[in-house]
Simulated assay, not measured.
Amino acid sequence: MSLSDQLTAFLVRSCRDTVLLPWDEMALDELVESPLPASASQLVRLAREANSRAMGDRTDLSLTTLRADRIRELLAVRWGVGTDHLDLAARDRGFSSPESAVASARPFYLLARYNERATRSASLV
């Protein structure tokens, strides 16, 4: 078989219907059998409750109005880096950019900022 045919065969054989790669599937299998999904569910519930309480008290407050610079500062503290190294720290954790990390952290900011114990005990941050 020519090199071109070998490459074509490799690409066709490696093509899948899903975006999951074999190592992702193994990691997901491990995840399903761990206590992490329950911890994540609890963390989401606590964050929703904190956000609802805060927004009930302040009608001008919403997740979109939270200051990105404060979320960046909290992420830097949690990750043990300076804000000038947040780009690399975010990429180390699978985010494409610090902005992506901030967007992902936004729903959890109030909980993490004002109830650090809850977010630390969930072992997710």
Rank of each mutant, 00 (worst) to 15 (best):
M1E: 07
M1I: 04
S2E: 03
S2N: 04
L3V: 13
S4E: 10
S4R: 02
Q6P: 03
F10W: 03
F10A: 14
C15W: 05
C15M: 11
R16Q: 13
T18I: 01
V19N: 02
L20H: 02
L21P: 02
L21I: 00
P22G: 00
P22Y: 01
D24Q: 11
D24L: 00
E25T: 01
E25K: 00
E25Y: 00
E25P: 00
M26N: 01
A27K: 02
A27E: 01
A27L: 15
D29C: 06
E30H: 10
V32K: 00
V32G: 00
E33V: 04
E33C: 05
P35N: 10
S39N: 01
Q42C: 05
V44T: 04
V44G: 01
R45F: 03
L46F: 03
A47C: 12
E49Q: 08
E49M: 02
E49C: 07
A50D: 05
A50I: 13
N51V: 14
N51K: 06
N51C: 14
N51A: 15
S52A: 14
R53D: 10
A54Q: 09
A54W: 08
A54T: 04
M55Q: 11
M55F: 11
G56C: 05
D57V: 09
R58K: 11
R58A: 15
R58D: 15
R58N: 14
T59I: 15
T59W: 13
D60C: 08
L61G: 05
L61Y: 05
L61Q: 10
S62V: 08
S62L: 06
L63F: 03
L63G: 09
T64D: 11
L66S: 04
I71S: 08
E73G: 09
L74F: 04
L75R: 01
V77T: 14
R78G: 13
R78C: 15
V81I: 07
T83P: 00
T83Y: 01
T83N: 07
D84Y: 12
H85F: 04
H85P: 02
H85S: 08
H85T: 06
D87K: 07
D87P: 05
A89H: 04
A89S: 13
A90Q: 08
D92R: 13
G94V: 05
G94K: 03
G94F: 15
G94W: 10
F95W: 00
S96F: 06
S96E: 15
S96L: 14
S97G: 06
S97T: 04
P98V: 08
P98D: 12
E99R: 13
A101T: 03
V102P: 10
A103N: 10
A103H: 04
S104R: 09
S104Y: 15
S104F: 12
R106S: 07
P107V: 09
P107D: 07
P107M: 07
P107H: 05
F108K: 00
Y109H: 11
Y109N: 06
L110N: 03
L110S: 09
L111V: 09
L111K: 00
A112K: 01
A112G: 01
R113W: 04
Y114K: 08
Y114E: 08
E116M: 03
A118W: 09
A118D: 13
S121T: 11
S121A: 10
S123M: 14
S123E: 13
V125F: 15
